[in-house]
Design a binder for these strands. Structure first.
Lengths: 259, 259
DNA sequence: CGCCGACTTGACACCAATCAAGATAAGTGG
DNA sequence: CCACTTATCTTGATTGGTGTCAAGTCGGCG
Protein backbone atom coordinates (compact mmCIF):
# COMPACT_ATOMS: atom_id res chain seq x y z
CA UNK A 1 0.00 0.00 0.00
CA UNK A 2 1.33 3.41 -0.86
CA UNK A 3 0.88 5.70 2.07
CA UNK A 4 1.34 9.37 1.52
CA UNK A 5 3.44 11.12 4.09
CA UNK A 6 1.60 13.82 5.97
CA UNK A 7 3.71 16.43 4.28
CA UNK A 8 3.16 15.08 0.84
CA UNK A 9 0.17 17.10 -0.17
CA UNK A 10 -1.94 19.95 0.93
CA UNK A 11 -5.28 18.61 2.01
CA UNK A 12 -7.73 19.90 -0.54
CA UNK A 13 -11.28 18.71 -0.97
CA UNK A 14 -13.60 18.03 -3.86
CA UNK A 15 -12.35 18.60 -7.39
CA UNK A 16 -15.49 20.54 -8.15
CA UNK A 17 -16.81 21.76 -11.48
CA UNK A 18 -15.98 25.22 -10.25
CA UNK A 19 -14.36 25.97 -13.54
CA UNK A 20 -15.82 28.02 -16.33
CA UNK A 21 -14.59 27.96 -19.90
CA UNK A 22 -15.20 30.35 -22.77
CA UNK A 23 -13.54 31.27 -26.06
CA UNK A 24 -10.83 33.88 -25.96
CA UNK A 25 -12.41 36.69 -27.95
CA UNK A 26 -15.06 37.24 -25.37
CA UNK A 27 -12.66 38.71 -22.87
CA UNK A 28 -10.95 42.05 -22.69
CA UNK A 29 -7.82 42.01 -24.80
CA UNK A 30 -5.47 43.63 -22.36
CA UNK A 31 -1.91 42.37 -22.73
CA UNK A 32 -1.26 39.32 -20.61
CA UNK A 33 2.09 37.84 -21.34
CA UNK A 34 2.03 35.38 -24.14
CA UNK A 35 0.78 37.73 -26.79
CA UNK A 36 3.19 40.48 -25.89
CA UNK A 37 5.76 41.35 -28.51
CA UNK A 38 3.82 39.51 -31.18
CA UNK A 39 2.49 40.85 -34.43
CA UNK A 40 -1.27 41.39 -34.66
CA UNK A 41 -1.54 38.43 -36.98
CA UNK A 42 0.21 36.15 -34.51
CA UNK A 43 -1.98 37.41 -31.74
CA UNK A 44 -5.06 36.66 -33.79
CA UNK A 45 -3.86 33.15 -34.51
CA UNK A 46 -3.43 32.55 -30.83
CA UNK A 47 -6.86 33.93 -30.00
CA UNK A 48 -8.45 31.61 -32.48
CA UNK A 49 -7.30 28.51 -30.70
CA UNK A 50 -7.45 29.76 -27.11
CA UNK A 51 -9.93 28.91 -24.40
CA UNK A 52 -10.23 30.93 -21.23
CA UNK A 53 -10.61 28.98 -18.01
CA UNK A 54 -11.77 30.45 -14.74
CA UNK A 55 -11.00 28.63 -11.53
CA UNK A 56 -13.19 30.00 -8.78
CA UNK A 57 -11.08 28.94 -5.82
CA UNK A 58 -7.66 27.57 -4.94
CA UNK A 59 -6.84 23.91 -4.60
CA UNK A 60 -8.16 22.74 -7.95
CA UNK A 61 -5.91 20.57 -10.08
CA UNK A 62 -5.34 21.73 -13.64
CA UNK A 63 -3.45 18.62 -14.64
CA UNK A 64 -1.40 15.91 -13.00
CA UNK A 65 1.99 14.37 -13.74
CA UNK A 66 1.68 11.35 -15.99
CA UNK A 67 -1.43 12.49 -17.81
CA UNK A 68 -1.42 12.75 -21.58
CA UNK A 69 -0.59 16.29 -22.50
CA UNK A 70 -2.82 18.05 -25.00
CA UNK A 71 -2.66 21.66 -23.86
CA UNK A 72 -0.31 24.47 -23.03
CA UNK A 73 -1.43 27.11 -20.56
CA UNK A 74 -0.69 30.75 -19.87
CA UNK A 75 -1.70 32.56 -16.70
CA UNK A 76 -3.81 35.67 -16.93
CA UNK A 77 -4.52 36.19 -13.26
CA UNK A 78 -3.80 34.29 -10.06
CA UNK A 79 -1.07 31.89 -8.98
CA UNK A 80 -0.42 28.19 -9.60
CA UNK A 81 1.98 25.78 -8.01
CA UNK A 82 4.06 23.43 -10.18
CA UNK A 83 4.90 20.29 -8.25
CA UNK A 84 6.20 16.78 -8.61
CA UNK A 85 5.98 13.74 -6.35
CA UNK A 86 8.94 11.56 -5.47
CA UNK A 87 8.68 7.77 -5.48
CA UNK A 88 8.06 7.85 -1.73
CA UNK A 89 5.14 10.24 -2.12
CA UNK A 90 6.95 13.34 -0.93
CA UNK A 91 5.90 16.42 -2.80
CA UNK A 92 8.31 19.05 -4.06
CA UNK A 93 7.03 22.33 -5.42
CA UNK A 94 9.25 23.38 -8.31
CA UNK A 95 7.85 26.85 -8.73
CA UNK A 96 4.99 29.22 -8.18
CA UNK A 97 3.85 30.86 -11.37
CA UNK A 98 2.20 34.21 -11.82
CA UNK A 99 0.42 36.16 -14.58
CA UNK A 100 2.34 36.04 -17.84
CA UNK A 101 3.96 32.69 -17.11
CA UNK A 102 3.57 29.64 -19.28
CA UNK A 103 3.24 26.02 -18.22
CA UNK A 104 2.28 22.60 -19.47
CA UNK A 105 5.07 21.76 -21.90
CA UNK A 106 4.90 18.00 -22.39
CA UNK A 107 7.80 15.56 -22.23
CA UNK A 108 7.25 12.75 -24.71
CA UNK A 109 3.53 13.44 -24.80
CA UNK A 110 2.81 13.48 -21.09
CA UNK A 111 2.94 16.06 -18.36
CA UNK A 112 5.79 15.58 -15.94
CA UNK A 113 4.50 17.99 -13.32
CA UNK A 114 1.28 18.56 -11.46
CA UNK A 115 -0.19 22.04 -11.61
CA UNK A 116 -2.81 23.33 -9.19
CA UNK A 117 -4.46 26.65 -8.54
CA UNK A 118 -3.42 28.20 -5.24
CA UNK A 119 -6.12 30.87 -5.44
CA UNK A 120 -8.84 31.98 -7.84
CA UNK A 121 -7.32 31.86 -11.26
CA UNK A 122 -7.83 32.75 -14.89
CA UNK A 123 -5.73 31.01 -17.51
CA UNK A 124 -5.62 30.60 -21.28
CA UNK A 125 -5.52 27.14 -22.73
CA UNK A 126 -3.98 26.32 -26.13
CA UNK A 127 -4.16 22.96 -27.90
CA UNK A 128 -0.56 21.87 -28.19
CA UNK A 129 -0.90 20.31 -31.63
CA UNK A 130 -2.44 23.39 -33.15
CA UNK A 131 0.02 25.64 -31.39
CA UNK A 132 2.84 23.62 -32.90
CA UNK A 133 1.32 24.05 -36.34
CA UNK A 134 1.19 27.79 -35.85
CA UNK A 135 4.74 27.85 -34.59
CA UNK A 136 5.88 26.14 -37.77
CA UNK A 137 4.37 29.02 -39.74
CA UNK A 138 5.45 31.76 -37.35
CA UNK A 139 9.10 31.40 -36.39
CA UNK A 140 9.00 34.59 -34.38
CA UNK A 141 6.35 33.13 -32.12
CA UNK A 142 8.40 30.03 -31.69
CA UNK A 143 11.51 31.98 -30.81
CA UNK A 144 9.41 33.77 -28.24
CA UNK A 145 8.48 30.43 -26.78
CA UNK A 146 12.11 29.36 -26.68
CA UNK A 147 13.06 32.47 -24.76
CA UNK A 148 10.31 31.76 -22.25
CA UNK A 149 11.38 28.20 -21.62
CA UNK A 150 14.98 29.32 -21.33
CA UNK A 151 13.84 31.80 -18.72
CA UNK A 152 12.12 29.04 -16.77
CA UNK A 153 15.35 27.12 -16.91
CA UNK A 154 17.21 30.06 -15.36
CA UNK A 155 14.60 30.24 -12.68
CA UNK A 156 15.00 26.56 -11.94
CA UNK A 157 18.73 27.03 -11.70
CA UNK A 158 18.22 29.86 -9.25
CA UNK A 159 16.20 27.46 -7.14
CA UNK A 160 18.98 24.90 -7.37
CA UNK A 161 21.38 27.45 -5.95
CA UNK A 162 19.06 28.24 -3.09
CA UNK A 163 18.42 24.62 -2.20
CA UNK A 164 22.05 23.71 -2.66
CA UNK A 165 23.67 26.30 -0.47
CA UNK A 166 21.30 28.28 1.70
CA UNK A 167 20.07 27.72 5.22
CA UNK A 168 16.36 27.45 5.94
CA UNK A 169 16.37 30.99 7.26
CA UNK A 170 17.96 32.32 4.09
CA UNK A 171 15.57 30.36 1.91
CA UNK A 172 12.65 32.10 3.49
CA UNK A 173 14.29 35.48 2.96
CA UNK A 174 14.80 34.62 -0.69
CA UNK A 175 11.23 33.58 -1.07
CA UNK A 176 9.93 36.80 0.43
CA UNK A 177 12.18 38.90 -1.76
CA UNK A 178 10.96 37.01 -4.80
CA UNK A 179 7.38 38.01 -4.07
CA UNK A 180 8.17 41.55 -3.06
CA UNK A 181 8.67 42.20 -6.75
CA UNK A 182 5.04 41.66 -7.62
CA UNK A 183 2.75 44.63 -6.98
CA UNK A 184 -0.23 42.28 -6.83
CA UNK A 185 1.15 40.82 -3.60
CA UNK A 186 3.25 43.58 -2.12
CA UNK A 187 1.84 46.95 -1.18
CA UNK A 188 4.76 49.37 -1.18
CA UNK A 189 2.76 51.96 0.76
CA UNK A 190 2.08 49.81 3.79
CA UNK A 191 5.11 47.50 3.30
CA UNK A 192 2.60 44.71 3.53
CA UNK A 193 2.99 41.41 1.72
CA UNK A 194 -0.13 39.37 1.13
CA UNK A 195 0.62 35.81 0.18
CA UNK A 196 -1.94 33.29 -1.05
CA UNK A 197 0.51 30.52 -0.15
CA UNK A 198 0.09 28.45 2.98
CA UNK A 199 2.79 26.91 5.15
CA UNK A 200 2.39 23.47 3.62
CA UNK A 201 3.15 24.74 0.16
CA UNK A 202 5.90 27.00 1.36
CA UNK A 203 7.65 24.17 3.15
CA UNK A 204 7.46 21.89 0.13
CA UNK A 205 8.76 24.71 -2.04
CA UNK A 206 11.73 25.52 0.19
CA UNK A 207 12.50 21.88 0.82
CA UNK A 208 12.12 22.13 4.59
CA UNK A 209 9.66 21.07 7.29
CA UNK A 210 6.56 23.09 8.04
CA UNK A 211 7.65 23.65 11.61
CA UNK A 212 10.93 25.02 10.34
CA UNK A 213 9.07 27.55 8.23
CA UNK A 214 7.18 28.71 11.30
CA UNK A 215 10.44 28.99 13.23
CA UNK A 216 12.06 30.94 10.42
CA UNK A 217 9.16 33.40 10.50
CA UNK A 218 9.51 33.67 14.25
CA UNK A 219 13.18 34.46 13.82
CA UNK A 220 12.48 37.10 11.20
CA UNK A 221 10.16 38.70 13.68
CA UNK A 222 12.58 38.38 16.55
CA UNK A 223 15.33 40.02 14.52
CA UNK A 224 13.06 42.80 13.41
CA UNK A 225 13.07 42.08 9.69
CA UNK A 226 9.38 41.33 9.34
CA UNK A 227 6.23 40.93 11.33
CA UNK A 228 3.31 38.50 10.93
CA UNK A 229 -0.11 40.06 11.05
CA UNK A 230 -1.98 36.95 10.05
CA UNK A 231 -0.45 33.92 8.36
CA UNK A 232 0.00 34.91 4.74
CA UNK A 233 0.00 38.55 5.75
CA UNK A 234 3.45 39.85 6.52
CA UNK A 235 4.70 43.34 7.13
CA UNK A 236 8.20 43.85 5.79
CA UNK A 237 10.27 45.94 8.17
CA UNK A 238 13.80 45.73 6.79
CA UNK A 239 14.14 44.88 3.14
CA UNK A 240 17.89 45.51 3.14
CA UNK A 241 18.25 43.14 6.02
CA UNK A 242 16.60 40.46 3.91
CA UNK A 243 18.92 41.22 1.02
CA UNK A 244 21.96 40.89 3.25
CA UNK A 245 20.65 37.55 4.39
CA UNK A 246 20.51 36.08 0.94
CA UNK A 247 24.11 37.10 0.33
CA UNK A 248 25.57 35.73 3.53
CA UNK A 249 27.29 32.38 3.80
CA UNK A 250 25.31 29.47 5.13
CA UNK A 251 26.81 29.62 8.58
CA UNK A 252 27.73 32.40 11.00
CA UNK A 253 29.23 34.51 8.24
CA UNK A 254 26.96 37.39 9.03
CA UNK A 255 29.92 39.70 8.52
CA UNK A 256 30.45 41.19 5.13
CA UNK A 257 33.15 43.78 5.40
CA UNK A 258 32.61 46.00 2.42
CA UNK A 259 32.54 49.77 2.79
CA UNK B 1 38.26 42.57 -0.37
CA UNK B 2 36.33 39.68 -1.78
CA UNK B 3 37.86 36.48 -0.58
CA UNK B 4 36.78 33.28 -2.21
CA UNK B 5 35.92 30.52 0.17
CA UNK B 6 38.13 27.48 -0.13
CA UNK B 7 35.20 25.55 -1.50
CA UNK B 8 34.34 28.13 -4.05
CA UNK B 9 36.39 26.83 -6.93
CA UNK B 10 38.47 23.94 -7.95
CA UNK B 11 42.06 25.05 -8.01
CA UNK B 12 43.03 24.99 -11.65
CA UNK B 13 46.15 26.53 -13.10
CA UNK B 14 47.00 28.47 -16.19
CA UNK B 15 44.27 29.13 -18.75
CA UNK B 16 46.55 27.90 -21.49
CA UNK B 17 46.16 28.11 -25.25
CA UNK B 18 45.63 24.38 -25.20
CA UNK B 19 42.66 24.76 -27.48
CA UNK B 20 42.54 23.99 -31.16
CA UNK B 21 39.85 25.25 -33.54
CA UNK B 22 38.91 24.15 -37.06
CA UNK B 23 35.91 24.36 -39.36
CA UNK B 24 33.31 21.69 -39.05
CA UNK B 25 33.56 19.98 -42.42
CA UNK B 26 37.05 18.75 -41.68
CA UNK B 27 35.87 16.25 -39.14
CA UNK B 28 34.09 12.98 -39.44
CA UNK B 29 30.37 13.53 -39.70
CA UNK B 30 29.21 10.90 -37.32
CA UNK B 31 25.99 11.86 -35.56
CA UNK B 32 26.63 13.82 -32.44
CA UNK B 33 23.41 15.16 -31.03
CA UNK B 34 22.48 18.45 -32.48
CA UNK B 35 22.19 17.33 -36.06
CA UNK B 36 20.14 14.27 -35.24
CA UNK B 37 16.63 14.17 -36.60
CA UNK B 38 17.36 17.02 -38.96
CA UNK B 39 17.01 17.11 -42.69
CA UNK B 40 20.23 17.03 -44.73
CA UNK B 41 19.70 20.65 -45.66
CA UNK B 42 19.42 21.69 -42.03
CA UNK B 43 22.50 19.70 -41.19
CA UNK B 44 24.42 21.41 -43.93
CA UNK B 45 23.32 24.83 -42.72
CA UNK B 46 24.63 24.01 -39.29
CA UNK B 47 27.93 22.72 -40.61
CA UNK B 48 28.48 25.94 -42.50
CA UNK B 49 28.51 28.03 -39.40
CA UNK B 50 30.13 25.58 -36.99
CA UNK B 51 33.60 25.58 -35.54
CA UNK B 52 35.11 22.59 -33.80
CA UNK B 53 37.03 23.25 -30.62
CA UNK B 54 39.38 20.81 -28.98
CA UNK B 55 40.29 21.26 -25.33
CA UNK B 56 43.35 19.17 -24.54
CA UNK B 57 42.83 18.88 -20.80
CA UNK B 58 40.30 19.53 -18.06
CA UNK B 59 40.03 22.72 -16.07
CA UNK B 60 39.84 25.14 -18.98
CA UNK B 61 37.07 27.73 -18.95
CA UNK B 62 34.90 27.89 -22.06
CA UNK B 63 33.02 30.97 -20.92
CA UNK B 64 32.13 32.71 -17.68
CA UNK B 65 28.92 34.09 -16.25
CA UNK B 66 28.46 37.73 -17.12
CA UNK B 67 30.35 37.63 -20.41
CA UNK B 68 28.66 38.77 -23.59
CA UNK B 69 27.18 35.73 -25.27
CA UNK B 70 27.92 35.21 -28.94
CA UNK B 71 27.98 31.45 -29.27
CA UNK B 72 26.00 28.32 -28.58
CA UNK B 73 27.87 25.09 -28.00
CA UNK B 74 27.21 21.38 -28.43
CA UNK B 75 29.35 18.66 -26.93
CA UNK B 76 30.87 16.05 -29.19
CA UNK B 77 33.07 14.30 -26.68
CA UNK B 78 33.99 14.83 -23.04
CA UNK B 79 32.26 16.40 -20.08
CA UNK B 80 31.71 19.99 -18.94
CA UNK B 81 30.48 21.45 -15.71
CA UNK B 82 27.88 24.21 -15.72
CA UNK B 83 28.23 26.34 -12.61
CA UNK B 84 27.22 29.61 -11.07
CA UNK B 85 28.66 31.61 -8.20
CA UNK B 86 26.61 33.07 -5.38
CA UNK B 87 27.19 36.58 -4.11
CA UNK B 88 29.35 35.20 -1.32
CA UNK B 89 31.59 33.37 -3.78
CA UNK B 90 30.21 29.92 -3.16
CA UNK B 91 30.05 27.84 -6.29
CA UNK B 92 27.13 25.66 -7.23
CA UNK B 93 27.39 23.22 -10.10
CA UNK B 94 24.05 23.11 -11.89
CA UNK B 95 24.81 20.16 -14.12
CA UNK B 96 27.42 18.05 -15.79
CA UNK B 97 26.88 17.78 -19.51
CA UNK B 98 27.89 14.99 -21.83
CA UNK B 99 28.08 14.36 -25.60
CA UNK B 100 24.93 15.49 -27.38
CA UNK B 101 24.10 18.17 -24.84
CA UNK B 102 23.74 21.83 -25.69
CA UNK B 103 24.83 24.82 -23.64
CA UNK B 104 25.42 28.54 -23.83
CA UNK B 105 21.93 29.95 -24.31
CA UNK B 106 22.19 33.62 -23.39
CA UNK B 107 19.87 35.55 -21.11
CA UNK B 108 19.51 39.10 -22.36
CA UNK B 109 22.74 38.84 -24.32
CA UNK B 110 25.02 37.53 -21.59
CA UNK B 111 25.89 34.13 -20.24
CA UNK B 112 24.45 33.42 -16.83
CA UNK B 113 26.56 30.36 -16.12
CA UNK B 114 30.20 29.44 -16.21
CA UNK B 115 31.15 26.41 -18.24
CA UNK B 116 34.44 24.57 -17.88
CA UNK B 117 35.93 21.40 -19.27
CA UNK B 118 36.34 18.68 -16.67
CA UNK B 119 38.42 16.51 -19.00
CA UNK B 120 39.69 16.61 -22.58
CA UNK B 121 36.84 17.83 -24.69
CA UNK B 122 35.62 18.38 -28.22
CA UNK B 123 32.73 20.76 -28.81
CA UNK B 124 31.01 22.50 -31.70
CA UNK B 125 30.54 26.23 -31.57
CA UNK B 126 27.75 28.07 -33.40
CA UNK B 127 27.43 31.86 -33.70
CA UNK B 128 24.16 32.65 -31.95
CA UNK B 129 23.09 35.39 -34.36
CA UNK B 130 23.52 33.24 -37.41
CA UNK B 131 21.90 30.28 -35.72
CA UNK B 132 18.89 32.45 -34.98
CA UNK B 133 18.70 33.45 -38.62
CA UNK B 134 18.71 29.83 -39.66
CA UNK B 135 16.07 28.99 -37.08
CA UNK B 136 13.80 31.64 -38.56
CA UNK B 137 14.04 29.84 -41.90
CA UNK B 138 13.89 26.34 -40.48
CA UNK B 139 11.07 25.98 -37.96
CA UNK B 140 11.78 22.29 -37.53
CA UNK B 141 15.27 23.05 -36.31
CA UNK B 142 13.89 25.58 -33.92
CA UNK B 143 11.35 23.16 -32.53
CA UNK B 144 14.20 20.75 -32.01
CA UNK B 145 15.97 23.39 -30.02
CA UNK B 146 12.87 24.02 -27.95
CA UNK B 147 12.61 20.35 -27.08
CA UNK B 148 16.22 20.34 -25.98
CA UNK B 149 15.86 23.31 -23.70
CA UNK B 150 12.67 21.84 -22.28
CA UNK B 151 14.63 18.70 -21.54
CA UNK B 152 17.25 20.69 -19.70
CA UNK B 153 14.47 22.23 -17.68
CA UNK B 154 13.23 18.78 -16.66
CA UNK B 155 16.74 17.87 -15.69
CA UNK B 156 17.03 20.98 -13.55
CA UNK B 157 13.74 20.12 -11.89
CA UNK B 158 15.03 16.65 -11.12
CA UNK B 159 17.96 18.29 -9.40
CA UNK B 160 15.61 20.51 -7.44
CA UNK B 161 13.84 17.41 -6.15
CA UNK B 162 17.11 15.84 -5.09
CA UNK B 163 18.39 18.93 -3.33
CA UNK B 164 15.00 19.62 -1.80
CA UNK B 165 14.28 16.29 -0.23
CA UNK B 166 17.18 13.88 -0.18
CA UNK B 167 19.86 13.24 2.40
CA UNK B 168 23.52 13.55 1.51
CA UNK B 169 23.79 9.79 1.28
CA UNK B 170 20.89 9.57 -1.13
CA UNK B 171 22.25 12.38 -3.25
CA UNK B 172 25.41 10.45 -3.85
CA UNK B 173 23.42 7.37 -4.81
CA UNK B 174 21.45 9.44 -7.28
CA UNK B 175 24.58 10.86 -8.75
CA UNK B 176 26.12 7.45 -9.26
CA UNK B 177 22.96 6.09 -10.87
CA UNK B 178 22.90 9.05 -13.20
CA UNK B 179 26.34 8.18 -14.52
CA UNK B 180 25.77 4.47 -14.65
CA UNK B 181 23.65 5.16 -17.71
CA UNK B 182 26.57 6.32 -19.80
CA UNK B 183 28.65 3.54 -21.35
CA UNK B 184 31.59 5.90 -21.67
CA UNK B 185 31.89 5.97 -17.88
CA UNK B 186 30.41 2.69 -16.74
CA UNK B 187 31.79 -0.65 -17.82
CA UNK B 188 28.98 -3.15 -17.42
CA UNK B 189 31.39 -6.08 -17.64
CA UNK B 190 33.50 -5.14 -14.66
CA UNK B 191 30.78 -3.08 -12.90
CA UNK B 192 33.36 -0.37 -12.79
CA UNK B 193 32.51 3.33 -12.90
CA UNK B 194 35.23 5.68 -14.02
CA UNK B 195 34.43 9.29 -13.17
CA UNK B 196 36.40 12.29 -14.40
CA UNK B 197 34.85 14.31 -11.57
CA UNK B 198 36.75 15.10 -8.41
CA UNK B 199 35.40 15.52 -4.88
CA UNK B 200 35.41 19.29 -5.08
CA UNK B 201 33.11 19.32 -8.05
CA UNK B 202 30.98 16.54 -6.69
CA UNK B 203 30.42 18.36 -3.42
CA UNK B 204 29.47 21.59 -5.18
CA UNK B 205 27.12 19.65 -7.42
CA UNK B 206 25.36 17.84 -4.59
CA UNK B 207 25.26 20.91 -2.40
CA UNK B 208 27.22 19.34 0.46
CA UNK B 209 30.69 19.58 1.99
CA UNK B 210 33.64 17.68 0.55
CA UNK B 211 34.14 15.82 3.75
CA UNK B 212 30.57 14.68 3.63
CA UNK B 213 31.09 13.27 0.17
CA UNK B 214 34.02 11.24 1.44
CA UNK B 215 31.93 10.00 4.35
CA UNK B 216 29.08 9.06 2.04
CA UNK B 217 31.50 7.00 -0.05
CA UNK B 218 32.80 5.37 3.10
CA UNK B 219 29.26 4.47 4.05
CA UNK B 220 28.49 3.02 0.62
CA UNK B 221 31.52 0.85 1.07
CA UNK B 222 30.63 -0.11 4.60
CA UNK B 223 27.14 -1.14 3.54
CA UNK B 224 28.46 -3.11 0.60
CA UNK B 225 26.90 -1.09 -2.18
CA UNK B 226 30.11 0.06 -3.82
CA UNK B 227 33.85 -0.01 -3.38
CA UNK B 228 36.49 2.64 -4.09
CA UNK B 229 39.47 1.46 -6.07
CA UNK B 230 40.94 4.90 -6.52
CA UNK B 231 39.07 8.16 -6.15
CA UNK B 232 37.03 8.51 -9.31
CA UNK B 233 37.18 4.79 -9.84
CA UNK B 234 34.32 2.98 -8.18
CA UNK B 235 33.18 -0.59 -8.40
CA UNK B 236 29.40 -0.89 -8.16
CA UNK B 237 28.41 -3.89 -6.08
CA UNK B 238 24.67 -3.48 -5.59
CA UNK B 239 22.83 -1.41 -8.15
CA UNK B 240 19.43 -2.32 -6.77
CA UNK B 241 20.55 -1.20 -3.36
CA UNK B 242 21.34 2.19 -4.84
CA UNK B 243 17.93 2.34 -6.49
CA UNK B 244 16.21 1.57 -3.22
CA UNK B 245 18.15 4.36 -1.63
CA UNK B 246 16.91 6.99 -4.02
CA UNK B 247 13.33 5.93 -3.35
CA UNK B 248 13.51 5.89 0.41
CA UNK B 249 12.32 8.72 2.59
CA UNK B 250 14.89 11.12 3.91
CA UNK B 251 15.05 9.50 7.31
CA UNK B 252 15.12 5.94 8.62
CA UNK B 253 12.45 4.84 6.16
CA UNK B 254 14.59 2.13 4.73
CA UNK B 255 11.56 -0.14 4.70
CA UNK B 256 9.36 -0.21 1.66
CA UNK B 257 6.88 -3.01 2.05
CA UNK B 258 5.80 -3.86 -1.45
CA UNK B 259 5.58 -7.47 -2.63
C1' DC C 1 -20.45 27.23 21.08
C1' DG C 2 -17.50 23.61 19.69
C1' DC C 3 -15.09 21.28 16.26
C1' DC C 4 -11.37 21.23 12.95
C1' DG C 5 -7.76 22.72 10.10
C1' DA C 6 -3.87 25.82 9.89
C1' DC C 7 -0.32 27.53 12.34
C1' DT C 8 2.99 27.95 16.28
C1' DT C 9 6.06 26.60 19.94
C1' DG C 10 8.91 23.36 22.76
C1' DA C 11 11.91 19.25 23.58
C1' DC C 12 15.07 16.19 21.77
C1' DA C 13 17.81 13.33 18.74
C1' DC C 14 20.47 13.16 14.76
C1' DC C 15 22.54 14.51 10.63
C1' DA C 16 25.85 17.30 8.43
C1' DA C 17 29.05 21.58 8.43
C1' DT C 18 33.08 22.95 10.48
C1' DC C 19 37.70 22.75 12.33
C1' DA C 20 41.76 20.08 12.51
C1' DA C 21 44.80 16.60 11.29
C1' DG C 22 46.34 12.52 9.07
C1' DA C 23 46.81 9.55 4.82
C1' DT C 24 47.36 8.81 0.02
C1' DA C 25 48.49 10.10 -4.50
C1' DA C 26 50.73 13.07 -7.82
C1' DG C 27 54.06 16.14 -9.33
C1' DT C 28 58.78 18.39 -9.19
C1' DG C 29 63.54 18.89 -9.02
C1' DG C 30 67.90 17.20 -7.67
C1' DC D 1 65.23 7.01 -8.59
C1' DC D 2 64.41 9.12 -4.42
C1' DA D 3 63.35 13.12 -1.28
C1' DC D 4 60.50 16.85 -1.17
C1' DT D 5 56.41 19.58 -1.98
C1' DT D 6 51.71 19.96 -3.03
C1' DA D 7 47.09 18.58 -4.16
C1' DT D 8 43.48 15.55 -3.13
C1' DC D 9 41.13 12.62 -0.38
C1' DT D 10 39.94 10.54 4.08
C1' DT D 11 38.99 10.28 9.02
C1' DG D 12 38.01 12.16 13.76
C1' DA D 13 35.91 15.42 17.19
C1' DT D 14 32.69 18.91 18.04
C1' DT D 15 28.84 22.01 17.53
C1' DG D 16 24.86 23.88 15.50
C1' DG D 17 20.99 23.41 12.57
C1' DT D 18 16.97 21.04 11.32
C1' DG D 19 13.70 17.08 11.18
C1' DT D 20 10.67 14.71 14.08
C1' DC D 21 7.30 13.99 17.74
C1' DA D 22 4.06 16.15 20.74
C1' DA D 23 1.33 19.82 22.65
C1' DG D 24 -0.69 23.94 22.43
C1' DT D 25 -2.88 28.30 20.20
C1' DC D 26 -5.41 30.73 16.89
C1' DG D 27 -9.15 31.52 13.67
C1' DG D 28 -13.03 30.13 10.79
C1' DC D 29 -17.17 27.77 9.90
C1' DG D 30 -20.85 24.69 10.91
Amino acid sequence: MKRLLPSSSTPEKKRAPEIRARPFDKISDRPSGIENLLSPREQQELRNIATVLDYRRGGITIFSEGEDAHFIYAIDEGVVRISRHAANGQRQIMAFMVPGDLFGLPERGVYVNTVEAVCPLRIYRFPWQRLKEIMMREPQLQLNMLVRVAHDLRQAQRQIMILGQQSTYQRLANFLLEFLQYPEFYDTKTSCLNLPINRFDLADYLGIARETVARAFARLEHEGLARRLKAGNIEILDMNGLRQLQRAGRRRNTDFSEP
